[in-house]
Design a protein around this nucleic acid. Structure first.
Lengths: 263, 263
DNA sequence: GGCACCATAACGATGCGTGATGGTTC
DNA sequence: GGAACCATCACGCATCGTTATGGTGC
C-alpha cells in the first residue's frame, strides 16, 4: 500500500523520513542515527527500503526528544526506554548534574563580567585584559577549593572585605606577605624567641589581622586551611611561598610571643 | 645541561612534562595535545626528545587554561594567542554564548523540577511521569516561540492564570477546544451566520474569554499568533487542529454575530 | 525526463582518556 | 636492574552535519 492510497482511504498513518522529521522537529539525519543505534526503528520499510514511520514511532520519538532536551545521553535514553527502567531516579540525578553545570557556567560568566567591569570604557591593551581575566578566573577557582575550609559566612565576609579594598592595597598585601616569607626564610637559623624572631612574629600577626579583620570565623578558616597544606591543589601549593620550615618557625615565634605576654 | 645541574646552579627553569603539568594543574596528555596543535610547544627538547618547559611556557599555559575555563575552544584560543588578536570582542561574544547556554540549562532544570513537583511523594508509574516531563518540556519550548507574539506582561499573566487553574481544568479546556474544532469541521458546509454557526461562534468566544480572562494584552498576543500560523514551528502547526478552513469559518461566524448585535 | 526524496557509507569535529610499545634517567 | 618518567602512535567517545554516490516516486 503506497502512501497515496493510505491517504485516500483516510487511514494515513505512515510517514516517510522527511515528513516525519518535520512533524517531530528533528532532522532526517537524526532519524537515521537513531535507527542505526536501535533507539527508534521505523515500523516498516517500503519495498524500496524507504523508512516508514507510524504513530507509535511518533510517541517514542517524542520521548527521545524530551529526554534529550533535559540533557540525557542517547545511550541512557536507550536504557530508559526499556520496559523496566527507573525514570524517577535518573531524573533526580540529572537535575543535580544540570545544577552543577549551571554553577560552573555561572563562575565563567562572573569571571568574564568582572573582568569586563574592571576594564570598562578604558581602552586597556590586551595583555592587561588578560591579567584581569586570569585574576578573576583564579578567584573563582579559589572560591571553590577554599570553600572546604571557610564557612559560608566567612567566605561572604572575606569577599566583602576584599571588594572594599583597593587593588593597590591588595597588591601591597601580596608584596608584604612575599617579603615576610623571604625574611623568615633568611632567618630560619635564628631563635624564634629571639628579637628577630619576635619582630617577624609581630609582622605575621599584623598581616593575619589585616586579612581576617579580627573576625573569628575567618581566622578559623584560615587556620584550618594552613593546617591542611598537604591537600591543597598542586598549583596552590606551588604558588605559596610558605614552606613547612617557615610554618614551623613562625609557629614557634608566635607561641613565644604569647608566652612572653603571659609573663 | 641536565635538570640536576640546572637545579644545583640555582637556575632551574626547565621542567619536564609531568612536573610542569602538576604545576599548572593539567595532565601530561593535555600538554601533548597542545603541543601537537601548536598551541603550546615547549621551549626546548632534551637530546632524548623530552619536552622541557620554561617559565614563558608557564605563562602561556596559564592563559590557555583560563580561556578554556570560560569556554573558549582550543582553536579560538590559538587565534587569541596570536599577537594581533582582539580579545575584547571575543570576551563579549563568549559572555553572550554562556548566557544563552544558561537559559537553556534553566529551562531543562525547570522542566525536571516541575515534573518532580507534580508527582511529589505520590508514586506514579513511569509512563505517567513521562507524560508530565513531556508536558513540562513542551511548555518550556512553547514559552520560547510564543514569546514572539506575547508581550512580557502578557506572558506573565498567562503563566499566572495557568498556575491557578487545576490540572483537571486545563485538561477540560483542551478537550473543549478539540471538540469545538471537530464540531466546526463537521459544520463547514453550513452557513456561518445560521443558528449552528452562531452556536459555534458563541462557544469559540467563550473559550477565548476563558483563556484570556478578558485581558486585552493576552488577546492581542493570541490574535497575532493565530494570524501568523504560517510561521509556527512544524510541530505546533501539526498539533493544532485549527485548519485554515476552520479559521475562515469561525471568523465569518464571529463577524456575523457582531453584526447581529449591531442591528 | 527532471525534481524532490530516499538509502548507505564515510569523514569531520571536540578535547582529551586510555592503552600499547619502546626508549631514558637515576 | 627496576621504578618512574618520557615519546609517539592510534583508537574511542557523542551526536549528528555534511558531502558523495546512486536508486525511487511522480
Amino acid at each position: 500500500m503506497r502512501l497515496e492510497e493510505a491517504v485516500s482511504m483516510g487511514t494515513k498513518e505512515l510517514y516517510r523520513a522527511k515528513e516525519f522529521a518535520n512533524l517531530a522537529g528533528v532532522t532526517v539525519r537524526a532519524l537515521h542515527h537513531y535507527d542505526r543505534l536501535g533507539l527508534l526503528r521505523p515500523m516498516q520499510r517500503s519495498e524500496a527500503g524507504y523508512r516508514l514511520y507510524g504513530l507509535r514511532d511518533f510517541a517514542r520519538l517524542e520521548q527521545i526528544v524530551v529526554l534529550k532536551f533535559i540533557g540525557i545521553s542517547l545511550k541512557q535514553i536507550g536504557r530508559l526506554l526499556e520496559p523496566d527502567a527507573k525514570l524517577h531516579g535518573v531524573l533526580q540525578k540529572q537535575r543535580e548534574v544540570l545544577l552543577a553545570k549551571r554553577l560552573q557556567l555561572d563562575k565563567a560568566i562572573r569571571a568574564i563580567s568582572n573582568a569586563q567591569r574592571s576594564t570598562q570604557s578604558r581602552k586597556e591593551p590586551d595583555w592587561k585584559l588578560f591579567q584581569l581575566i586570569i585574576r578573576e578566573v583564579e578567584m573563582q577557582k579559589n572560591l571553590e577549593w577554599k570553600g572546604k575550609y571557610f564557612s559560608t559566612e566567612a567566605q561572604a565576609k572575606v569577599a566583602a572585605r576584599r571588594s572594599q579594598l583597593s587593588p593597590q592595597a591588595l597588591e601591597k598585601a601580596n608584596r608584604d606577605w612575599a617579603k615576610l616569607h623571604r625574611d623568615i626564610e633568611a632567618s630560619l637559623n635564628e631563635d624564634p624567641a629571639g628579637p628577630k624572631g619576635q619582630e617577624l612574629a609581630a609582622r605575621w600577626e599584623k598581616l593575619i589581622e589585616d586579612f581576617t579583620g579580627g573576625d573569628p570565623d575567618i581566622l578559623r578558616g584560615l587556620t584550618a586551611m594552613m593546617a591542611d597544606r598537604a591537600n591543597w591543589p598542586a598549583d596552590a601549593r606551588a604558588a605559596s611561598r610558605a614552606t613547612p620550615e617557615i610554618e614551623v618557625f613562625i609557629q614557634k615565634a608566635v607561641e613565644a610571643a604569647k608566652y612572653k605576654l603571659v609573663c
